[in-house]
């Protein structure tokens, strides 16, 4: 994973002096050949469904009488949006994932960075073994990982709870105060090693002689890590950070699976569950579409803010 390349030539991305000398239309056919295959499919599987969703969010289904006649689709304007924005469920669910993101993302990224620094330090042995072990959970598909942890959380199946009880410490991973962080643990378990690997790749791309000079000056390993290594893996932090933010907004597997075993996880625990429930249980596709559109806007705003902060970093 050569994210280290981010550090080396980022400045080159936006200015291509060599090309300025030529008139751009010389490359039109090449540009078309490279961009259009992806672009056409992108329009087809991303843009069209988004437009469809936006359209759908303006309609609602109406019945009459006993409700057994054919339901009629009616244009309701921004009614679905007002309903979403004025429902406490939407705001609770949104607040929850923001809290989740504020807690889980930094913990996971810092944990990944620490592990990457340790593996990169001169003190580490069996680096390749650890690297594989840490990365292993990423090979477990999200749903299966959630199911697996559900067994470890379930009050009557969990060996942890059994152990806790035997030493007189009652553990409850599913209580209303804890369950969000139990989910955060699942996400962290799956993705920490993956993020660690991205950061480790970035670290290992730093020329070793930089450390050697510092070592000759008597700097400790800790100091080298903090003042030489960390600043150089910032681009890797940007990449993993944006990925994690998007993942948080789309959080679905973990709450959906824990919903089965935890009373504290209701059917609208996170916005994606709210939308799915509206669509598939209440047949309220308009509302589901409105929630999706709002969610995309939130994701966009947060990512732009994060990006801005990241861009402010000195090169």
């Amino acid at each position: 994973m050569s994210t280290e390349t981010l550090t080396t030539r980022r400045a080159g991305t936006d200015s291509v002096p060599a090309l300025r000398r030529r008139r751009p239309n010389q490359f039109v056919s090449a540009i078309v050949i490279f961009i259009v295959p992806f672009g056409a499919l992108f329009l087809f599987v991303y843009v069209a469904p988004i437009l469809y969703s936006i359209g759908q969010s303006l309609f609602s289904i109406r019945s009459s009488g006993l409700g057994f006649g054919a339901p009629v689709t009616t244009f309701v304007g921004v009614d679905n949006y007002t309903r979403a924005l004025s429902s406490s469920e939407f705001w609770t669910a949104l607040g929850r994932i923001l809290l989740f993101g504020a807690g889980q993302v930094p913990v996971m990224l810092i944990g990944a960075l620490v592990l990457a620094l340790l593996l990169d330090s001169a003190a580490a042995r069996w680096v390749s073994v650890y690297r594989v072990l840490f990365f292993l959970p990423y090979a477990v598909p999200g749903v299966i990982a959630a199911v697996l942890w559900a067994y470890l959380y379930s009050p009557s199946l969990s060996p942890f709870v059994a152990f806790g009880n035997s030493v007189g410490v009652p553990l409850d991973f599913l209580s209303p105060e804890i369950v969000l962080w139990s989910m955060a643990n699942i996400t962290t378990w799956v993705f920490m090693g993956y993020n660690m690997l991205i950061m480790l790749s970035a670290l290992q791309a730093i020329p070793r002689d930089q450390f050697e000079a510092a070592r000759l000056d008597g700097a400790s390993e800790w100091r080298i890590a903090l003042s030489i290594k960390v600043p150089q893996v910032r681009p890797a932090l940007v990449l993993t950070g944006i990925n994690s933010i998007i993942g948080t907004i789309q959080l679905f597997n973990e709450p959906q699976v824990l919903h089965v075993i935890a009373n504290s996880v209701d059917s609208s625990y996170v916005p994606t569950m709210l939308a799915m429930g509206a669509a598939f249980i209440k047949n309220d596709f308009g509302f589901a579409a409105a929630v999706s559109v709002l969610l995309a806007i939130v994701a966009g705003v947060i990512s732009i803010i994060y990006y801005r902060i990241a861009m402010r970093n000195p090169e």
Partner: peptide, 10 residues
């Protein structure tokens, strides 16, 4: 929770 597999353990 009746559909939690843990129910069978109970």
């Amino acid at each position: 929770k009746r559909w939690d597999p843990g129910f069978y353990s109970e």
